[in-house]
């Protein structure tokens, strides 16, 4: 009996999405009256792993085989399934890597998958987990009918609450052989210096209202000041004003930040499909009839070229006065 969280690190730091998976696993373990354990594969920082204790993890099972540092969904699946063979629930963040692993682990362990959980499980009349469907326009309450369960957690679902504690680290061998690794990395293109969009807590996004790529300086400045990621509408990436990996919406990335600031974006339904899970939305638009205001928490009717510089100034002032 136990709940297992799968942990990933980036540059020796545990990914925020994995911290969420750890916290979700320990909250689930409380509901199920059992223990929360973490699984880590490849290179990790030992003190980072031990700190998972602050999120309620009692023990970390670590296979430090460096082959795991090259992402290979098949090999990772085999390792997780082997280490978690006595566990009831496996929690994996549904980030980019999780989307490749969780479905495989589900099949390998014959364990029903919730692909994108949006809340903790409930044990009323079965094992139930809810998930957003129809791009956030509805919620489906799923029942998992298998003995073992895989929960793939949508990033930014839970607010982490840290306590005291240190997890013990136990070296394990997952029994994966070299032949299980079939992926070769040929190259990596980093979009350096920027905050990763799908994990970002704050996102500043802009659309065709900015008139041209030369006007993005103020968007980048605001984002940099706030420590936010930048995003854009499809209309903008289609004409190459901004790179495609910034495009959010139905055909781009889905984001769920705490704050989404939309500048000069009309709020077409296909755009909203990728952002309406955001906790708070600010819309800045010259047109008071722009559909985005219906989805917004705070609205500013005004010209971006006037409003955004004022917002940058106000934010700088706020930051200078806090602390």
């Amino acid at each position: 009996m136990s709940v297992i969280a799968y942990i990933e690190s980036n540059d020796n730091k545990i990914k925020k999405s994995s911290l969420e998976a750890a916290y979700y696993a320990s909250e689930t373990a409380k509901i199920m009256e059992t223990e929360a354990i973490a699984v880590a594969l490849g290179t990790h920082d030992a003190s980072e792993l031990a700190n998972l204790g602050q999120l309620g993890i009692t023990k970390v099972l670590h296979d430090s085989n460096p082959k795991f540092d090259t992402f290979d969904s098949g090999a990772i699946t085999k390792a997780i399934a082997s280490i978690a063979s006595n566990s009831d629930v496996v929690v994996i963040s549904y980030n980019q890597n999780g989307k490749a692993i969780a479905p495989r682990v589900s099949v390998r362990m014959k364990a029903g998958l919730i692909p994108g959980a949006s809340a903790l499980p409930s044990l009323e009349g079965g094992f139930n987990v809810s998930k957003n469907v129809f791009s956030g326009k509805a919620i489906a309450h799923y029942q998992v009918n298998t003995a073992k369960k895989i929960i793939a957690l949508t990033p930014n679902t839970l607010q982490l609450i840290k306590g005291e504690g240190t997890a013990t680290i136990e070296s394990v061998s997952s029994g994966v052989s070299d032949a299980d690794f079939t992926t070769v990395i040929k190259g990596i293109e980093k979009t350096s210096g920027t905050v990763s969009l799908t994990e970002a807590e704050l996102v500043v996004s802009a659309g065709r209202g900015l008139k041209g790529p030369e006007n993005w300086g103020m968007i980048e400045e605001l984002a940099k000041d706030m420590g936010a990621a930048t995003a854009c509408s499809r209309a903008v990436s289609d004409v190459h004003w901004r790179p495609h990996h910034e495009h959010v919406g139905q055909t781009g990335f889905t984001v769920r930040p705490n704050l989404y600031i939309a500048v000069g974006i009309s709020g077409a339904i296909q755009h909203l499909a990728g952002v309406n899970g955001s906790k708070k939305i600010v819309v800045i638009n010259t047109d008071s009839e722009a559909p985005f205001f219906k989805a917004a928490d705070y609205g500013v009717v005004g010209d971006a070229f006037v409003v955004v510089p004022k917002l940058i100034e106000a934010y700088k002032k706020f930051k200078a006065n806090s602390y």
Binding site: N132, Y142, V144, T146, A296, D297
Partner: peptide
Amino acid sequence: FTNVKVYDMPAPKTACKMIDPENMD
């Protein structure tokens, strides 16, 4: 492996608060 028991709708959005463009503070 799984089935949907029931659907529901997300809580309706509260009305958008409009802010004076001169007052970003």
